[in-house]
Amino acid sequence: MLNSGISILFEGINLQRLLLGLLVTLRVASIAVVISIVVGIIIGVIRTSKNKLVQLPFRIYLELFRIIPILVWLFVIYYIVPANFDINLSSEVVALIVFSLWGTAEMSDIVRGAIISLPKHQVESSKALGLSPVQMYRYVLIPQATKRSIPPMINLITRMIKTTALLTMIGVIEVIKVGQQIIEVNNLEYPSASFWIYGIIFLMYFCICFPLSRFSRKLERKWAT
């Protein structure tokens, strides 16, 4: 039975459909990643300010996304916003909103951490040289902080890609949903379908995330000294 099960992948356009589903997953992830990096860097720089009134709202924003699970956020935005504010949101847009908000929060923390971990004399010497704050960030702090923040950024990206698996729960037709559809259609012909389909999706995620996490570890080691 098991030997016959794997052929479900090559039946018709099943494999093609799974790959198309994977594309949806990656589309959501990559748009959210781009937004998070851009906005995250801006907020991260703002959060290095010593003003408590500036820090507090961003801190609360970050902690909210750290404490409440992403799945709950997805449900909250998916059910509450359309019902109460009379806006129609497709599940993919909901996913994009939640992932961008979450990614931005985490990204800003990475950027902030990288900047404040820089030795203090860097700030002091650039002030002594008479650089304006913009010049200081542009020429001194950001180039150095980039090196420190890229490995954790890549780790965050892998985490975001892994978390896209949850999109299936709010009805985005991504790779897992497509897999479920294939399993249900072929349930009689291929009873072991779920083993193979979920197995192959497992492998797909691994093939995307493994090189990324490998790359980040390599960079980390290279830049450690």
Binding site: L2, K162, T168, F202
Partner: peptide, 23 residues
């Protein structure tokens, strides 16, 4: 470590819960 860290929990669970009974 590589397998566990690079795959989503949901898919691990689906595999355990829906996939394994088939074998």
């Amino acid at each position: 470590l590589e397998i566990a860290r690079n795959t989503p929990l949901l898919i691990q669970l689906f595999f355990l819960y829906y996939g394994l009974p088939k074998v």
